[in-house]
Simulated assay, not measured.
Amino acid sequence: MDPTVVSPAPPTRSPAKRVIPPNPLLSAAVVAGFVALLFVVEGIDTALGGSLDHDGVIPRDFTEWDNILWAPVLHGGWEHLTGNALPLLVLGFLATSGGLKQFFQVTAVIWLTDGLGVWLAGSPGSHIGASGLIFGYLVFLLVRGVFARATAQVVVALAVFAVYGAMLWGVLPGQPGISWESHLFGALGGVLAAWGVARDHHRAAAA
């Protein structure tokens, strides 16, 4: 019997340097499902006369600390929600490139960092909306490519910055009715998530 030559398997892109999610359709469905949930919640809030708007993060109020868990799904009206929907879809989808498990972990880090930061240092009032998540995803995408030394991710991050970079001005105070604290702490959560992802990949590579 003649010997058989088996070609080596083609190299696969490291998860740390991946730009497109391993399962794009599933990732798109998950992110779109979350955005759809926001519309459902806003519909319920509208039916209740906007009463849910007062259930956001209330800084330094120990009786309302659990609002951290659902403040990002609440919005102050349809205009507020529709303004967040498209960037949330785009940035959320790109943030799934490391897989859905990593995406959920990144989202949890941003969600909690944002909520706890606003609870500790926010201005009085009810802080609601998914913009903290949006800022977190944006900064996560900008920073992770640098940590991973992934050229493709850096290029994508620059493209994202060209489109959404002006949003980063939202971390500065000055616009009445805008929770710049949520933007700021969401962005810090994005940095923390990017650092954690890079650390985990370095540990996995070393092992």
Rank of each mutant, 00 (worst) to 15 (best):
A47G: 15
R60E: 05
V57H: 02
T63C: 02
S27K: 02
V40R: 07
A36Y: 10
P8Y: 01
F62P: 13
G49C: 06
G43T: 05
G56P: 11
D45E: 12
A29S: 15
P21Y: 08
E42D: 14
T46C: 03
L25G: 10
P10H: 11
I44V: 15
F34M: 15
S27G: 08
G33M: 02
G33R: 11
A47I: 05
I20H: 00
R13F: 00
D45Y: 11
W65P: 00
G56T: 03
A9P: 06
A36C: 14
V35N: 08
P24Q: 01
V6K: 05
D66N: 12
A36T: 15
T46D: 14
F39Y: 15
A16P: 03
D53P: 02
S51F: 02
S7R: 15
V31C: 06
R60F: 03
V57A: 03
V41M: 10
D53W: 07
I58C: 00
A28K: 01
W65Q: 10
R13E: 09
L38A: 03
P22W: 07
V41A: 03
E64N: 13
S7N: 10
V35W: 00
L26A: 14
V35P: 07
T63R: 10
S27M: 08
D45P: 04
V30P: 03
A29K: 12
E42Q: 15
L26N: 04
L25A: 11
F62S: 13
L37E: 12
K17W: 05
F62D: 11
N67D: 10
E42I: 01
E42W: 01
G43C: 05
S27Y: 13
L25E: 08
E42G: 06
V30C: 09
D55T: 12
A28E: 07
P22R: 04
A9F: 07
V19A: 00
V19E: 03
P10V: 09
D55Y: 15
L25C: 01
S14A: 14
F62T: 14
F34T: 14
K17H: 09
H54P: 02
L48P: 14
G33N: 12
P8I: 09
I68S: 00
D55V: 09
I20F: 08
G49M: 06
P11Y: 00
D55K: 11
V35T: 15
S7P: 07
W65C: 00
A16R: 12
V6G: 02
A29L: 15
A16E: 13
D53H: 13
D66Q: 13
A47H: 11
D53T: 10
R60P: 02
P21L: 10
V40H: 09
V6N: 05
P11V: 12
D53G: 10
R60A: 03
P24Y: 06
G56C: 05
V41Q: 04
V6H: 13
V31F: 08
D45C: 09
T46H: 12
A29P: 04
P59W: 00
V35M: 06
N23M: 05
V41R: 00
P24W: 08
F39L: 04
R60N: 07
P24N: 07
A29N: 02
T46V: 12
S7V: 10
A28S: 12
A16V: 05
V57I: 14
P15T: 03
E64R: 15
P8F: 03
G43M: 00
L37Q: 03
H54C: 02
P24I: 08
L52Q: 02
V41C: 07
G56I: 01
A47P: 02
I68H: 01
P21S: 06
L37G: 14
